[in-house]
Design a protein around this nucleic acid. Structure first.
Lengths: 257, 257
DNA sequence: GATGGCGTTTGATAAATATCAAACCAACTC
DNA sequence: GAGTTGGTTTGATATTTATCAAACGCCATC
């Protein structure tokens, strides 16, 4: 078995590259921005990247901090959030391995608009501005790649706006579960795990924790899902799709108050 | 529902290009994406750009259409909007001379998410994908410029999210007026003109026309503004700023734990 | 000067969502 | 086990915003 391993390793290793670099490069490749990089540029970026380990609750940067780096998540979950002067926190984005963040502020030179914090233990790769700009200017393909990634982000953000503008609570929740469904096809069935505690998801969907709880219950008793702690079983995927689309669940049954 | 659009295209011959190019180049330079272009690239882009004239209500592109061009506004007002299957229309963005749009869909190769329509008579410049990609790959500075512009757009979009997430109706209206105030410093005083009819602004601020009307009235009787048709006089700018609930980007920087 | 259209305003009411308070529950610590 | 803690749920109520309907006002046109 040693020989087999050798053969396999040869295919994946890049001779000149330091062995330590491999896991880093592997992390980078998972991020869309770096997906189709030439080996040379990838190596350079992996070489200059620094690693960052966070405990749950650890802060990567806070709103208002100058942007100095781009981050790529190797392991763990983070949230990007904003908080109002009153202290209310709104989760802008839930992030997971393979995601990158910090590009926009870094490339505009502005201060961060959002706060990035770990919810679980995290390992990140950090790429500083000089390395990034260097890679962009020296690798024409990479520049186009970055442009495509940024455009994609704008496109997704615009799509996300649609959720806020057109859907009400039940629709947003349904869409959230639906989106998770496609991600988590690891668990073959129609079962998804809520990635972080419910309060954060509620905030991400722009509603209170209480309302989120009630909405989950509502979807439950309408027979679309079944909720057990952090696990959600999708029972009627078609109805869920409808709910995520634009159907309203006007069940004016009980609810006496 | 306005499909009756008058599109007038004019191509200029190479010989008279230098003369005719001036106004086009001038239009381009007003757009941030093209602001600091080398003369050569600017000339090339101006040369390949085509002109587009729209009557009020004219359609530039509809949601779902393949993205083929980037547009820069020379004169007039347009709206980017989405509509739900129920027919409700939501204005995503109000656009004015100097603004460009269509980049994200063009550069990702996706279909347009939004519909772009003229509210007043408009003159646009249109740059096709080939010319744009060509300029990006041949002018390193321009590539960085485009990256900066896209990043800026992401940054602004994120900031705009803040409005929707944290502010309620009166705050959004106050902020809208406040933002206009800085733009319209042409009219020396604290007077701004609403750029389009109120229903569109209401939609842009994610509220009904009725609610917008009431909110304007409310701000009025609270002594912050005075409304006369499309003209809004800001009476108490400090109170207006408070009502806008502007979040300040604090100075303290966070670092990794 | 009447007529009609369109955008706006006003009023009454309903729906969606937030807030406040308390109970609940599971995991962890002493 | 008893107590603590942080997250979740439930209930009662208040607030915000939407909906529906009608009136209003301004222009343009006949």
């Amino acid at each position: 078995m040693v020989f087999i391993n050798q053969r396999v390793e040869r295919r994946f290793s890049i001779e000149i590259m330091d062995i330590k670099l491999q896991p880093r490069a592997a992390t980078l490749v998972r991020a869309p921005a770096f997906a189709h990089l030439t080996t040379k540029t990838l190596q350079q970026l992996a070489a200059t990247a620094t690693e960052l380990t966070l405990k749950p609750g650890g802060l990567v940067f806070a709103r208002g901090a100058p942007a100095t780096d781009l981050y790529v998540i190797a392991t763990g979950h983070l949230v990007l959030s904003m908080q109002s002067p009153q202290g209310a926190e709104h989760v802008i984005e839930l992030m997971q391995p393979g995601d990158s963040f910090g590009e926009a502020a870094l490339l505009t030179g502005h201060a961060h608009l959002v706060t990035a914090a770990a919810v679980t233990a995290c390992d990140l790769l950090r790429i500083d501005r000089r390395s990034l700009i260097n890679a962009i200017t020296h690798d024409r393909e990479f520049a186009l790649n970055v442009i495509a990634t940024l455009s994609e982000q704008i496109y997704r953000q615009t799509g996300a706006l649609e959720n806020l503008l057109f859907l009400r609570a039940s629709g947003r929740v349904a869409r959230f579960i639906f989106a998770r469904l496609k991600l988590d096809d690891t668990i073959a069935g129609h079962r998804v795990a809520l990635p972080v505690r419910k309060g954060l998801i509620a905030s991400h969907l722009n509603m209170t924790q209480e309302h989120f709880s009630r909405t989950l219950h509502e979807l439950s008793s309408a027979g679309l899902i079944r909720v057990d702690g952090v696990m959600v079983d999708v029972i009627d995927i078609e109805k869920l799709r409808d709910a995520a689309g634009l159907l309203r669940i006007s069940e004016n049954a009980g609810q006496a108050s």
